[in-house]
Amino acid sequence: MSEEKIRVLVAKPGLDGHDRGAKVIARALRDAGMEVIYTGLRQTPEMIVEAALQEDVDVIGLSILSGAHMALVPRVLELLRAEGLADVLVLIGGIIPDDDVPALLELGISGVFGPGTNTDDIVRHITATLGARQ
């Protein structure tokens, strides 16, 4: 009777305004059968990692529009490692300049998804990456 569900934390770090994009992603992941913990706006890296730990998520989706990704992302990854959560997939959505993508992937980000991304691609990326581990 074991029934596993993929759990995803969707968070919006940084100080910039709206979270429409993050909500669209959250619903798309729900519609793909995942359990999405939605934490809302203005999350610090510390809050994100603490929530990821308590919720025991498989995936963290960060929505970043502010341009602060090169400051926020390394901090999130560092805290994840410190908490023993290095195996959590971290995805980034939002507005990320192409030039920064290689550096983010190098840091350990699993995928970067820009504004035009089809949500199905994100779902496939998650299921394929988690599935390949088992």
Binding site: K5, A26, R27, L29, R30, Y38, T39, G40
Partner: peptide, 11 residues
């Protein structure tokens, strides 16, 4: 419908 959920209480 999907078996998924959006859990928003932490907000």
């Amino acid at each position: 419908f999907s078996g998924g959920a959006v859990l928003g209480d932490r907000i």
